[in-house]
């Protein structure tokens, strides 16, 4: 028992399962008791959440989920493309300024960007994508520049001694040598996009998506529905996260990040 409280102690898988199981049980118990006790019903009971979930399902939750995930994927794809291009060129002295500036732009406020985008784009869906792309690109570029900076000098020197010219060094050490890091960086920034996505969807309302559902549920003050939706969004995010980790470790055996 004392082991459970010892820092850095390694426990067996079975012991860990017991501990984690107890936490989940405690969570539900707490929820149950809290839901019973409060008459204000500030927080919905499990039953209400389940009802909310069924309601959402009948209104085509699955379609909305796919619509959001698809939006997310498109935004990630475009922005990783832009960010990779910018950051892979950042070791070139002449272009360093560009990558650094893009990285700094993450302090720009969202509203200003949407204002200008609204003048250029009229489709709601396209608009959502570009808001996300602009945001994502700044964060991804920041992480990618950091990744390149963290490569030890020895790795560059090693490539140089093998008769690699500087472009080959860039290709071998940075681009090929760190592909797996790119997946990891996408994963780490995914939480920001996913959160932004739902917000963007609820601000710039287009047809459907999880953000749209949240906005609708807000109107009716339906607590069960809102919590159910939150859980669905959380689960989707975690699922994409998990998929990215799996992809990385399966594709790149050497990737022990």
């Amino acid at each position: 028992m004392k082991k459970f409280f010892t820092p850095f102690e390694k426990l067996s898988t079975a012991q860990l399962a017991v501990i984690n199981g107890s936490w989940v049980a405690a969570l539900f118990l707490f929820w149950y008791i809290f839901g019973m006790a409060s008459d204000t019903h500030l927080f919905p009971t499990l039953g209400q959440v389940w009802e909310g979930f069924l309601g959402l399902y009948n209104e085509g939750l699955v379609v909305h989920v796919f619509s959001s995930v698809w939006l997310c994927l498109r935004a990630i794809f475009i922005s990783i493309f832009i960010s990779l291009f910018i950051s892979y060129l950042s070791p070139i002295p002449l272009l360093q300024f560009v990558s650094k500036t893009v990285s700094k732009l993450r302090y720009l406020p969202l509203t200003g960007i949407t204002f200008y985008l609204a003048m250029m784009i009229n489709s709601g869906r396209t608009m959502q994508i570009w808001v996300l792309v602009i945001f994502m690109s700044t964060y991804l570029t920041t992480s990618l520049i950091g990744m390149i900076k963290d490569i030890p000098q020895e790795e560059f020197d090693h490539a140089r001694t093998l008769k690699c010219n500087r472009w080959e060094v860039l290709l071998q050490v940075v681009i090929l040598g760190r592909v797996d890091y790119v997946l990891e960086i996408i994963r780490q920034n995914l939480a920001i996009v996913w959160m932004m996505l739902v917000t963007v969807e609820s601000i710039l309302v287009a047809s459907g998506g999880l953000g749209f559902l949240i906005k609708n549920s807000d109107k009716f003050m339906n607590h069960g529905r809102i919590v159910a939706l939150q859980l669905v969004i959380l689960a989707c995010g975690l699922l994409i996260d998990f998929a990215l980790v799996k992809t990385r470790t399966v594709l790149f055996r050497y990737s022990k990040i």
């Binding site: 020895e154 790795e155 020197d157 001694t161 040598g177 050497y254």
Partner: peptide, 11 residues
Amino acid sequence: FVDQKYTLFRN
């Protein structure tokens, strides 16, 4: 050059 840390291509 073989450096003190035996650096190799990780991939």
